[in-house]
């Protein structure tokens, strides 16, 4: 479409700008329990994207009238730090951030047993420290392990990653350049063990085949991320064995 001729995002033999193949994730680092004054926390690096997540609660809902009698409410705040982008981003929540907060909440909600904590609120704060594409998916991946670290019961972890179309090819885990100059971007979140999709967005155009190809590619990426999430959670309590 509007791909400028001067930038070659992907070579003929399928090597991308940063040297990855089409089905490779960026290097990922995850850590859990990084903050002290909250119920659960996580830090994730996916390529140059860096995100910190804090979970607070379940705690009493204030003001009282927002509380629901039968379940906890989940509040998510996706926020980009002013220094997270090339050009300073105003710290006030933008239209995009408000929307992403909602979308992320809806991706996490199906996994949580919110009915176990009626009349309470669970807060999830997602702070993007450095943005290089894929922040909503990395945010979801990190938020779910932060929730798990807080001990909030859930059906499964939620893992997310994007696929996109770059130079006519379907590729996994877009970086900033690919996101900006590519033809399509499709973030997907899943509960991997249960094989259920909780978020699917598509920006751009894909054919039916490309979409299917993309979903399969995402499943592969999510499998890798899922095992990293579990590793990060286990590492929090290394020494593994429990005795009573």
């Amino acid at each position: 479409m509007c791909l400028s001729e001067s930038i070659v995002l992907i070579t003929q033999d399928g090597v991308r700008l940063d040297g990855r193949r089409i089905d490779e994730l960026r290097p990922v680092k995850m850590q859990v329990g990084v903050l002290k004054n909250c119920s659960g926390s996580a830090y994730i690096e996916q390529g140059k994207t860096k995100i910190l997540v804090a979970v607070q609660g379940p705690r009493e809902a204030h003001p009282k009238h927002i509380a629901l009698p039968g379940r906890a409410i989940l509040r998510t705040r996706y926020h980009m730090a002013p220094f997270s982008t090339d050009e300073r981003k105003s710290p006030a929540p933008s239209r995009r951030e408000v929307e992403l907060s909602k979308v992320i909440r809806e991706a996490l909600e199906p996994a949580l047993f919110l009915e176990e904590y009626p009349k309470t609120v669970i807060d999830v704060f997602i702070e993007v420290l450095q943005a290089d594409a894929g922040t909503r998916s990395a945010g979801i991946t990190a938020a779910s392990i932060a929730l798990a670290e807080a001990g909030i019961p859930m059906r499964d972890l939620v893992t997310a990653v994007a696929v996109g179309k770059v130079g006519g090819k379907v590729v996994l885990d877009l970086n900033e350049a690919e996101d900006e100059h590519g033809e399509a971007d499709m973030p997907i979140a899943m509960m991997p063990s249960l094989n259920k999709i909780t978020l699917l967005q598509l920006n751009g155009r894909l054919t039916r085949q490309e979409l299917e190809e993309g979903v399969n590619l995402v499943k592969k990426g999510i499998k890798e991320l899922y095992s990293l999430q579990k590793q990060a959670l286990r590492a929090r309590f290394s020494g593994a064995q429990v005795e009573v």
Binding site: A148, P153, Q241, E243
Partner: peptide, 10 residues
């Protein structure tokens, strides 16, 4: 018995 498990583990 007594393995560490994470949410979603079968």
């Amino acid at each position: 018995h007594r393995d560490i498990v994470t949410p979603g583990d079968l």
